[in-house]
Each structure stands twice: as C-alpha cells, then as structure tokens.
C-alpha cells in the first residue's frame, strides 16, 4: 500500500537525505516536504497525510511542539521525531506524545524499522 509521508526539516539537505532513503525503501510512497512547523500544519490540514517525520531542531516551533499539534489533529498518525542529540528528556517527551524517537543522521535501517511499524499501525487502524 502506498502512503503519503510528510518530511519536516528546516534543512533542505536533510530533507534530500530522507528523500533519498525513502526512494530506496518505499519508492511508491508520495513525499510531501515542509521547512517549518507552520508549513507542516498547513499541509496536514489541506491534504491526507499518513505518516510524518519531524526534525526536532527547527526555528520557530520545534519538532516536539509540532508532534503535539499533529497528535491533536490526527490522533492515529504514526509520527517520528528526529534529533542528533539523543537526550533523555527529548526521548521521553517524544514517547509521551506517542512519537517514535529516531537519532540523526537518520540511517536507512532506523527509517526502515519505523516505516514497517507505521504500515502495520495504519493497516490495523483501517481494519
């Protein structure tokens, strides 16, 4: 099943890296990109997004804040917060929101595990 994934990062380079990994892992998925939280929220309101990958460190609202907003809008959407700093506090807060924590730079392996989990959850929710 092909889904629509939202990639939020203020660095275009980072989005390119995720896009490249997605191309290897799930070439049939549609990718939607946003450079900050406001843009991401606007996109989620406009279109049907199935999965979201959020960078933690962004100007304006950070990835955790955005994850909270998205959770409120779409309680079932699989979310991941990506950060280079594996800090206990961030990991815990991500879990509280119900988002998975992924270390940066994102490896294909970590992304693959998240995507697989996300597919199962979407499938289960749809049944």
């Amino acid at each position: 099943m092909a889904y629509r994934i939202l990639i939020v990062d203020d660095s275009k380079l980072a989005r390119m890296a995720v896009a490249k990994a997605m191309n290897n892992l799930r070439p049939d998925w549609t990718r939607v990109e946003a450079g900050d939280a406001a843009e991401a929220l606007a996109l989620v309101r406009q279109q049907e997004i199935d999965v979201a990958l959020l960078d933690f460190n962004m100007p304006g609202r950070d990835g955790l804040g955005l994850a909270g907003d998205l959770r409120a809008l779409r309680p079932d959407m699989p979310l991941a917060v990506i950060s280079a700093n594996v800090q206990h506090e961030i990991v815990t807060r991500a879990q509280e929101i119900g988002a998975q924590f992924l270390p940066k730079p994102l490896t294909e392996q970590a992304l693959a595990a998240f995507l697989q989990d996300a597919e199962q959850r979407i499938g289960a929710a749809g049944e």
Binding site: L13, A84, N85
Partner: peptide, 17 residues
Amino acid sequence: DSAFRAFHTLKGAAGII
C-alpha cells in the same frame, strides 16, 4: 538559541555528506 541551531544544523549537514 539561533547560534546553537546554526551549529547544530551545520553538524547535521556534515553528517549527511
């Protein structure tokens, strides 16, 4: 905060390449 973010993102960029 902005300076921290700049260094952090630079680090991330270096990691990507």
